[in-house]
């Protein structure tokens, strides 16, 4: 046991020193991309494992993007599945009905991107009520938004109404999911460590004080909602082309609840937490699959226990160092040095 813990802590220090070097990132991403291509082409992983990894990736995108609103901004959005639905339907319509069948493989990223942009436009509209209402009332706005999306889709016969829409090729492959996941994590992490990200945080902490300290809260809210819904739309497009079948009920309140659980399981305002939350939740659900219905009894029970003993989730308000920009990490060091120089100069 003792030996195990020392090896574990050694491994952990290794990991920390490894990730502290910033070339770690390009290398890691390249390796991941190569592995995902190899896994898909050479069938290193069987189809089932690949599918689970695809879901893990999609869930990471959903969780990180929702965390922007619910964790960093401190609002309570319950309509994330609605944005996902918009992305899923737009991308599916494009690949099935609009793009020529021959070049579908080639145009797949365009379809996904268009889905994301469509969702982002709607996200812009949802941001507007957030100027005036907060908290529970904004929760209702997003809830109503989710319901409206679902019931609109159910009433459009061209996309199959309540029966759903099918005919997509299985275009969502492991490399694509890896690419989009890395992109979404990277972009949202960039946003968080910019002036807009700090604006988002200041809205969570004290919106009035923020606006009095020159933060343009409307601009910040629009950016947060647009980015968050954009990536929900991307995830929706990937989801549709992994499952090859979508219907409005897949994107109802239960789906939004799933994403909420991953966000709060991993911990609010933490990218590392969101990634962890998505991985743990997705994989745990798969591991517990033999339990049948009872796994859905056990999961919520575990969530409740987690909330009672760790109300902020696994990583709540903490961030893994590897996601923090170097500048923020060494700022204090620079600061001390400057101070020393100043005292030296005066002496």
């Amino acid at each position: 046991m003792d030996k195990f813990t020392t090896t574990y802590s050694q491994l952990l220090t290794r990991w920390h020193t490894l990730t502290a070097h910033r070339f770690f990132w390009p290398v890691f991403i390249l390796a991941g991309l190569l592995f995902s291509i190899a896994a898909a082409r050479l069938e290193i992983l069987d189809q089932y494992v690949q599918l689970i990894l695809i879901y893990v990736g999609i869930n990471i995108i959903l969780t990180v993007s929702l965390n922007l609103i619910n964790g960093y901004m401190g609002e309570f959005s319950v309509g994330h599945a609605g944005f996902m639905a918009i992305g899923a339907y737009i991308a599916s319509i494009l690949t099935v009905s609009v793009f020529p069948q021959a070049s579908v493989n080639f145009l797949f990223p365009v379809a996904i991107l268009t889905g994301g942009i469509g969702a982002a436009l709607i996200g812009f509209l949802v941001a507007i009520p957030s100027f005036k209402t907060r908290g529970d009332y904004l929760a209702i706005v997003t809830l109503a938004f989710g319901m409206i999306v679902k019931s609109c889709l159910e009433n459009i016969d061209a996309v199959g109404g309540p029966r759903g829409f099918l005919g997509m090729d299985k275009l969502t492959t492991l490399p694509w999911v890896f690419f989009w996941t890395v992109l979404s994590v990277w972009v949202i992490r960039n946003l968080v460590y910019s002036k807009f990200g700090r604006g988002v945080l200041s809205i969570r902490e004290d919106e009035i004080a923020a606006s009095l300290m020159s933060v343009n809260t409307r601009q910040v809210k629009i950016i947060a909602f647009v980015v968050s819904s954009f990536f929900a739309g991307i995830a929706g497009g990937l989801f549709a082309h992994a499952l090859q079948f979508i219907n409005p009920r897949m994107f109802d309140i239960l789906k939004s609840t799933d994403i909420l659980i991953m966000v709060y399981l991993g911990g609010i305002a933490s990218i590392a937490g969101s990634i962890l939350g998505a991985i743990i939740y997705t994989i745990l659900l798969e591991i517990l699959r033999p339990m049948g219905v009872w796994r859905m009894v056990l999961m919520p029970l575990m969530l409740v226990l987690l909330m009672i003993y760790r109300p902020r989730g696994i990583m709540g308000l903490r961030e893994a160092k590897m996601f923090v920009p170097l500048r923020d990490l060494i700022l204090v060091k620079i600061l001390r040095q400057k101070k020393k120089e100043a005292t030296d100069a005066s002496a």
Partner: peptide, 28 residues
Amino acid sequence: KPLRNAPRVSAIITALGVGLFLENFTLA
């Protein structure tokens, strides 16, 4: 009750969890 002094949102998520538990327990 254990969450009365915790962040408000943890209580909401707990409530969502309790709801899911009741649904799925009944379903089982």
